[in-house]
Design a protein around this nucleic acid. Structure first.
Lengths: 333, 333
DNA sequence: AATTGCACTGAAACCGGTTACTTTAACTAA
DNA sequence: TTAGTTAAAGTAACCGGTTTCAGTGCAATT
């Protein structure tokens, strides 16, 4: 149906090799010949077949984005950023929800490899070293997002989690909190761990500090909700809560509301991430905002640079976070 | 590097055709030959190259999902559903954010065609008939989501928008509202139009009804916010607002809160969609819930059936909506 | 015994590109 | 004049599969 490279070659009276050269703007093709070929391409409405190109060149202009769950608003912003960058560089993106399951990731990676994908943005905490090695062997570029590790055999983009946590606690202290608790994310998740460490660094020397001020909330709304109930049972005098992410902070808010606590008068709440949800709650949430879009953008840009051979070394990029003060810690005037 | 079909053929001492037959479980291959081939495949860790398969068969086991913006929580649930179904059927999904721009959609469709994509789930209101025809010609299956139109030359999945709107208004009437306004979505958007029509049908015969009770809110939080301010200036006695989607309803809540109105005592609010945001607001939002995941699921299933040739005719599927009563209309006890 | 049908398999064309290698002709340097 | 470049283009192998068509051997039919 559609015209092929051979049709173009025939019509412009050159070999397919020459047509291919024109398409890929390779080496030296006589300007006049070039014109003839281009004219033929137009006449036939020729468009290179990307699958054939992929087979021959082993480059498919496709990247994949692996993340736990797109329903998480943090990730949907990431997706948007990655897609934007990909799109404007002529790449297409395949989306993969792993649910944080190694098995799912495994099977995705496998099929992606068989599809000659050019690179992967990996926004998940479950990447294994073997996988990294395997991908390298298959010449699939890799950028890891929101991941901490001492091992750095690949490029990593993340926000300053520990520093952000310190900022959060420091803000709570500033507004006068006398006993600050922390609700933390999944153990095993490096991001959650770094935030917890930041909290600990700030509070461990206070006389009121006790490890029982640490409660797990699994990075979910409901987790934050349950954690708050548990926490206030043990420590009714807590007057500040630093939640390890915004979703849990929402849960905190819900719980406090249900318990009839006033925010921020009785208890101040600070989240982490800066997803748009924080503007929707009542009161609006103070949070440590990551530059979410920029994280995704940077990850995609670096990945594409690697794919295009413009970047060799593997670096760790740590983006700054910012404290956004809202009504959950200070009443705006 | 990796083993090819010819390696397998050589090792198992058959032709590549036979190996291909084993791979695709086609026709009759002698069980013993089959065993030999399979053993060779295992020995060589052979995995068919999907790009080559795609080129030869013009089937790539890939579908695309075109939607306005993944950041919209409604769509992120859709994505999740589509991806789940695709995944479990051996398909991979390419995500395309169109921002509702015909130009972007156009360029996506073009590149998708060149990639031999098998089908498209189109979750946007801007589809043009020419595109539908073109896709048909290229043998690319199509399912349209959340789209209304008299033209039905393709399969359409949507919720009962008009009926849902009627349910919303009817609920507001039941709880005693005496003057109900409607904030509607973008003109030109069929979904928004149908909801508006449902509202009108329910209220046009009341003496209090006036077309000025209709205010545009663009399906965004901020749009709902502005609309509410405008509305209450003109109609301070409105005591019920039906927002055309949940995002606008959130905006309504924010505006009312700012104006010091009590919800639902002074004003009752009902949204539409049933995104999880409605459980996060204070008060929680009454809404007409669409079965969002099911919409995406159904769309993907139908698409894949069409791709696999199991489904020929084009149907319109209308899924039921349900009223979820929450504190923005009735105080729970 | 000749014919037909069927199960099984192979040869080779094909999908639509890329690219290593070669050839040709014109151009430069010695 | 002659060898050495170089720009421009062609030939054909190659990427790794699918599929059409043809052929073989053997059992069933007449």
């Amino acid at each position: 149906m559609a015209a092929t490279i051979r049709d173009v070659a025939k019509l412009s009276d050159v070999s397919v090799a020459t047509v291919s050269r024109v398409i890929n703007q390779i080496s030296t093709v006589n300007p006049e010949t070039q014109k003839r070929v281009k004219k033929a391409m137009e006449q036939l409405k020729y468009e290179p077949n990307l699958v054939a190109q992929g087979l021959a060149s082993k480059k498919t202009q496709t990247i994949a984005l692996i993340l736990p769950n797109i329903s998480n608003p943090f990730f949907s912003d990431i997706v948007r950023a990655v897609e934007d960058v990909a799109q404007s560089n002529g790449f297409t993106v395949i989306l993969c929800n792993s649910d944080g399951l190694v098995s799912k990731e495994q099977s995705y990676i496998e099929v992606l490899r068989k599809k000659y994908i050019d690179g992967i943005v990996f926004a998940s905490n479950t990447l294994r070293i073997e996988d990294i090695e395997q991908l390298k062997k298959d010449n699939i570029s890799l950028v890891v997002l929101d991941y901490s590790s001492t091992m750095e055999s690949c490029s990593i983009i993340r926000a300053k989690n520990r520093e952000g946590a310190r900022m959060a606690v420091s803000h709570l202290l500033e507004i006068g909190c006398k006993k600050i608790a922390h609700i933390y994310g999944p153990i095993g998740d490096q991001t959650a761990k770094n935030r917890l460490e930041g909290y600990e660094e700030m509070v461990h020397s206070f006389s009121w500090y006790s490890p029982t001020l640490l409660v797990p909330g699994h990075f979910t709304i409901n987790g934050g909700f349950e954690a708050t109930k548990m926490l206030l049972e043990k420590h009714p005098d807590v007057d500040g809560i630093f939640a390890g992410n915004d979703l849990m902070a929402v849960g905190v808010l819900k719980a406090l509301h249900q318990m009839g606590k006033k925010i921020p008068e009785d208890l101040a709440v600070c989240g982490f991430d800066g997803i748009y949800l924080t503007e929707i709650t009542q009161p609006e949430l103070t949070t440590i905002a990551q530059p979410i879009y920029e994280l995704g953008e940077k990850a995609a840009k670096i990945l594409i640079n690697k794919i295009n051979g413009l970047l060799e070394e593997d670096n760790v990029y740590e983006l700054d976070v910012t404290l956004i003060k809202r009504d959950s810690t200070i009443k705006a005037h």
